[in-house]
């Protein structure tokens, strides 16, 4: 029994954090919101160059040959920077599911961009910048997309019609795409939450009222501590879910649902508390906090919200 990451896994995640600190500052996220694309080709090229996008593709197909345990800290780091565009859909599902198909080579290289259309969803996130869309039994190309005005400018929503179909049965190491996305989103939500806490803690250290930094007041301390508590206790379940997925454990669906339920609730609580700590500035377009909050609100409802996943856990635990 060993519940830790290897030095290589940690160093790779730290490398990604460093890359994103330089290449994906809040100003970049704001730019892609405002230019209407919700995606940065330059950032995409950096992620491709580092091997992040191809982490879950087999080495034989030109990928990094990693498992979900290798990828989970990367999803978290992507969340810390609120990386815009279809990076999770591409990396966690399209690349591993299509690696050995005719679509594989250009997806692994990052030359083409894929997103995911989950069954029953009226909207497809990122369709405006995607070359192909993966569905439950086919791949769609040359489709038409219409803006559906999503709240998060780094995760634009579209309705999609038409397109050319190619049969495909996506499967990610025994997981269906929905569950692979629930797992990746859980880690991404934890990263978002960590960043929101950092931003609010920094604000609480410098913003003064009554002649003191507001972070010295217990009411503020306790709001922040409670948010941190939820985030910290969502981490181990998320890493365990990644391990379960990596070995195809019998419990992997239950474990992924537990992770997504806890991470979604932690992120929502964190968004509320950190906005509250900001006071009036937290309710402005100008504050960077919104880039992370809105991404949280989008992802907490995507690929199953906390209620959906809690009930799925119930199905295993109370049966």
């Amino acid at each position: 029994m060993k519940f830790s990451f290897t030095d290589d896994q940690r160093l790779f995640a730290e490398g990604l954090r460093e890359l994103l600190a330089n290449e994906c500052p809040p100003t970049l996220v704001r730019d892609v919101w405002e230019n209407g694309t919700g995606h940065s080709p330059e950032l995409w090229a950096h992620l491709s160059g580092m091997g992040v996008l191809s982490m879950l593709a087999p080495e034989a197909d030109g990928g990094m040959g990693g498992s979900f345990v290798d990828a989970i800290l990367l999803f978290q780091e992507l969340g810390r920077a609120a990386v815009p565009g279809p990076v999770l859909e591409h990396m966690a599902v399209a690349v591993p599911a299509l690696a050995s198909t005719t679509f594989g080579a250009s997806l692994i290289a990052g030359d083409s961009i894929a997103t995911l259309w989950v069954d029953d969803s009226p909207y497809v996130a990122h369709a405006g910048v995607a070359d192909l869309i993966l569905r439950d039994d086919h791949v769609l190309e040359s489709f038409q997309s219409t803006d559906a005005h999503g709240m998060d400018g780094g995760r634009r929503l579209f309705t999609v019609s038409g397109g050319d179909r190619t049969d495909a049965t996506p499967n990610v190491a025994g997981l269906d795409p929905f569950d692979a996305m629930a797992l990746a989103s859980a880690a991404y939500l934890i990263g978002l939450s960590e960043r929101m806490i950092e931003i609010a803690a920094e604000y609480a250290r410098v913003r003064e009222q009554f002649g003191k930094p507001i972070g010295s007041f217990q009411a503020v301390k306790h709001l922040m501590s409670d948010a941190l508590l939820k985030v910290e206790f969502a981490k181990a379940p998320t890493y365990r879910a990644a391990f379960s997925a990596s070995i195809g454990a019998d419990t992997m669906v239950r474990d992924i649902s537990m992770a997504k339920a806890l991470a979604s609730e932690a992120a929502y609580r964190t968004s509320r508390s950190t906005m509250q700590v900001h006071g009036g500035i937290g309710y402005t377009w100008e504050a960077d906090l919104q880039l992370f909050m809105k991404k949280s609100w989008a992802l907490m409802r995507s690929y199953g919200d906390a209620n959906f996943h809690r009930r799925r856990v119930s199905g295993f635990v109370l049966a």
Binding site: A201, R205, P213, K221, S225
Partner: peptide
């Protein structure tokens, strides 16, 4: 909660 705020979150 005070301890967490002071030592983990580095609040004043």
């Amino acid at each position: 909660r005070n301890i967490i705020a002071d030592r983990v979150l580095q609040l004043p």
